[in-house]
Amino acid sequence: MPILMIAPSVVLIAIFVYGFIGRTAYTSLTAWRGVVPDYTFVGLRNYERLFQTEKFQADIVNTIHFTVFFLAGCLVLGLGAAVLLDQKLRGSIIFQNIFMFPLAISFIVTGTVWRWIFNPNYGLNVLFHNLHLDFLQSGWLTSPGSALNSLTIAAVWQMSGFCMAMFLAGLRGIPEELREAARVDGASESQAFRYVVFPLLRPITLSAVIILGHISLKIFDLVFVMTFGGPGYATDMPGLNMFITTFRQDLFARGAAIATVLLLMVALLIVPYLIWNLRGETER
C-alpha cells in the first residue's frame, strides 16, 4: 500500500528525469550535428573535442570559481543577517522582509537591473563618485578580471536571503537554555556561539550548501541576461554554452555532451551528500 501511494511520483520521475537523462547521454555519443537527427555512434569523440575547446575549459574554471564565491557570499551574508535578526531588535521583521524580497524576483529581472547598476558610466560608479568613494569604482562587468565577481555579487544578492531564512530558523530552533548553560559555565558570548550554536547549525549549513550549490552549477538565466558569457569567456558557464551549442550552433551531440558533464558535476556534489545523509539517519 505505501508503495502504491508513491508510485505515480516514481513513474513520473523515472520518465521525466532518468528517461530524459538517458536519452541525453545517448545523444552525446552520436554524430548528431545539424537539424537532422543522426544517431551514428561515435563513442567519446564529442567529449574529446569539447574538452579541447578553450571555451569549455574556461567554463569549468568559471563554474568552480563562481560556485565557491557564491556559496561563501551567501553563507556569510546569510549567517550575519540571521545573527543580527536573532537579536530580536525592534523592527527586525521589517529587515527580515527586506532581506528576503529578492527571492521573489526572477533571475531575468535581477540580471537586467544589475547589468545597469554595474554600468561604469551611469551605475554604481556614479553613486560612489557622488559619495566621494571613488576608490570603490571598478570596471565591474566590463573587464575580464572583475566580471565574474560582479556576476557573483548579483547572484548573492538574489539568493542570500534564502540562507538567512534557513540560518534564522536554525538559530531560533536552538533552545535558549543551551546558551544560558554555556554562559553559566563562564563562556563569553562569542565562545557560546562558537562551541554551542555553530555546531548545531552544521546540518542546516550543509542543506543550504547543497541547494545553493546546484543552483550555482546550473546557473543560466542570470548569465544569459547579464553578460551572455562575456567579456570573452570571462563569465561563460556550461549551462549557457550548452544552450548556445545546441540551439544556435545545432551541434546537438556536443550540446548533449556538455549537459552530461554538467550532470556529472552536479552528481559529484549531490551523491556523497545523499549517501552520507541517509546513512547518518539509519544510524541515528
Binding site: 554600468n119 558610466n121 570596471g139 562587468l141 566590463t142 553578460t227 562575456g230
Partner: peptide, 8 residues
C-alpha cells in the same frame, strides 16, 4: 571606444 563596451 568606450571602455564599458562588453556590457553594452
Amino acid at each position: 571606444v568606450n571602455s564599458d563596451h562588453p556590457t553594452l
